[in-house]
Design a protein around this nucleic acid. Structure first.
Lengths: 283, 283
DNA sequence: CGATCAGTTGAAGGGTCTCAACGCGAGTGG
DNA sequence: CCACTCGCGTTGAGACCCTTCAACTGATCG
C-alpha cells in the first residue's frame, strides 16, 4: 500500500469516544501528562473535566486531513509529523516537520477546518485537546492556557524559519540551514545534535526547501564534498558545525569567495571544477 | 533620512506609561475597542484592569525591533505593517505584511524577545496588550482570550501562505498568488478586491516572494502583458480575476501550455518571442 | 533644481529545472 | 526462495529562467 494513501481509520478522534475523560481508574490524568510534556510545572488539580485524549499513529497514518473539520488541537508526544498542503493539480507543498512537544492543527481554529494535513513519518503519538475546550472560556485551565500560548508562539517562530530555508539563497545554503534547524531540534530533545537520522524522504525535503528532489541529492553531495557533513541514505553526521553555520549565513546566489574556510582540517587542494566554491575533499 | 533607518522614538511602549489603564475619564475602554476591532460581540465588563494601550505610528516608524525584549502583543487597528528579519550580512527577508485586525509580535512570547521586526508602511495604529496580561492566568478575560486565539490561528494560517508564494514556482506565479492574497485581504476589509494601492515597494515584494526586485518588475510587466492586471506605479487593477487564479494554480516551472486562455478578450496573436506563455497584447 | 531613491529595461552568465536512466531495498506473491 | 514490482535515491545532459551588473528614467523632497 502506498506511503501517502495510507488513510487513517479514525480521522475524527472525538467521534467515537466519550468526550469527557477524567483521570479515573487510578491512572494518571492525561491532562497532567500533557502539561508535563509541554514543560509546565503546575498541577492542574483534579476538578477539570477537560477532554484530553492520547492517540497513537503508525508510520504513514494521517493525523488530520486537509479540509477536515477542526475538532481538536494536537500536541506531539512522540514521533515526527509532516505538515503539508496539496494543490489542485496534486503538487504537494511541505510546510514543516514537527516533533515532540510541538503543537499541530492550531491554524484550523480560525476557519473551522484544517488548511493543511499532517501525517506521521514514523510511529508516533499525540495528545488531542478538543476545539471546544481550547475555545470555551469557561472550564479553562490556567496551566494549559500558558502551555498552549507558548507552544503556539513556538509554532509561529518555526513558521518563520520556513522562510529562511526557502528564501533567496542557493540550494546548498537552504539545505545547510535545514540541517542546522534539525540539529537544534534534536539537541532540544536531548538527542545528539551532530548525528541523527532523517525522518523524511528526499522529496519531502525538496518540497520543504522549494527545490527539485534531484537538487537535494546534489546539495547533499556538495555538503559532503566540502566535508561539512557526511550522509548515507538517511543517516546524517555533521562534521563541521561552524563551517555549516558559515555557509548557512550566505544569502547571495553566488557563494564564490564566501567559502567556509575556517577550521581548516585538510588542504584545500584539487580544485575540482564544476562548482564556484572551492572543493576540499577527494570526492 | 532613510526609510529603514527611521528608528522609533519609543521602542518600548510600556516603559513610560502607567501599566494599568482603566476605562476612566468618561472615554470608552480601549479593551472594549480592541474587542470590537477583533470582531468580538461580547462586552468585557468594567472590572478588568487589563492593560491595553493604543499607539500611533508614522510611516516608516518601528513597532518593535528585531531582538527587542518581548513586552507586548500588538493588534493592528489601522494601516499596514511589514514584518521582516535582517541577517548578519544585512540581507532583509520580508516575512509578511499585516493589516487591520491582525496580530503582531506573538512569536516573541516563547523566546522573550522578538525574532523579527515590524515597521509601519504608512501611518498606522495598534492596540498593545502587555505580555504579562497575555500570559498571566489570573486577570484573564474570556472575550479577549477567544479573540487572541482566533487572531493567532489566522496568523498561523497566513504564515502558511508565505510558503505558497515562495515555493517552487515561476516568478509570475508567485506574484499572481501574492496579488490574490492582497485582493482577498482588501475584500475582507471592505475595500475593492479588484483595484487597490500597494503599500509596499518592489524590493519588499521581491524579498517576500524570494526573487530579485528586477524580477518583480518584469513579472508585473508580464502579468500586464497577458491582460491579467494593469499596474501603474503602486496602483494595481485586476482585470481578469479568473485568469489570475488559473495562473496562480500553476506549480510547475514550465507554464507552457497551461496559459490563461479562458476569457479571451482579444486575439492571441503576435507570438512575440521570448516567453513560453503566449503573449496576448501589443506590448 | 540637484540629489536621492524607486522602478524599469537590457545583456550576459550560471544555477536549477526537467527529462531520462540506473542501482538499490522493501514488500509481495507465485 | 526468488522473480517481480514499486518507490527512493542518485547521476547525467540540455534547456531556460533567474540572477547579477549596468544604465536609464521618473518621482519625491529639500
Amino acid at each position: 500500500m502506498s506511503y501517502y494513501s495510507l488513510s487513517s481509520l479514525a480521522q475524527t478522534p472525538f467521534s467515537n469516544v466519550p468526550l469527557h475523560v477524567r483521570g479515573v481508574g487510578g491512572e494518571r490524568s492525561q491532562l497532567a501528562e500533557l502539561l508535563q510534556l509541554m514543560g509546565s510545572a503546575e498541577d492542574p488539580g483534579w476538578a477539570s473535566d477537560m477532554s484530553v485524549l492520547m492517540r497513537r499513529l503508525r508510520s504513514g497514518e494521517t493525523l488530520f486531513h486537509q479540509g477536515a473539520r477542526a475538532e481538536a488541537v494536537y500536541f506531539v508526544r512522540a514521533g515526527t509529523f509532516k505538515t503539508f498542503r496539496i494543490a489542485e493539480d496534486g503538487y504537494e507543498q511541505v510546510l514543516g516537520f514537527s516533533g515532540r512537544a510541538e503543537v499541530l492543527g492550531f491554524d484550523a481554529i480560525c476557519m473551522g477546518q484544517h488548511p493543511t494535513a499532517s501525517i506521521a513519518l514514523e510511529d508516533s503519538s499525540v495528545y488531542a485537546v478538543s476545539m471546544r475546550d481550547i475555545l470555551r472560556p469557561s472550564q479553562r485551565i490556567p496551566a494549559l492556557d500558558q502551555v498552549v500560548t507558548l507552544a503556539v508562539s513556538r509554532a509561529l517562530t518555526q513558521q518563520g524559519e520556513l522562510a529562511d530555508v526557502m528564501a533567496a539563497v542557493a540550494a546548498e545554503v537552504r539545505l545547510a540551514r535545514f540541517m542546522l534547524q534539525l540539529s537544534s531540534r534534536m539537541e532540544a530533545c536531548g538527542q545528539s545534535p551532530r548525528r541523527f537520522r532523517l525522518r523524511m524522504g528526499r522529496r519531502d525535503i525538496a518540497s520543504h526547501l522549494g527545490v527539485a528532489h534531484e537538487t537535494v541529492s546534489r546539495s547533499f553531495q556538495a555538503l559532503a564534498r566540502w566535508s561539512l557533513l557526511s550522509v548515507s541514505n538517511r543517516e546524517v553526521e555533521i562534521l563541521d558545525m561552524n563551517g555549516l553555520k558559515t555557509l548557512a549565513h550566505c544569502t547571495r546566489r553566488h557563494l564564490d569567495d564566501i567559502d567556509p574556510l575556517r577550521s581548516p582540517g585538510q588542504a584545500a587542494g584539487t580544485a575540482q571544477a564544476g562548482r564556484p566554491v572551492p572543493d576540499r575533499a577527494i570526492a
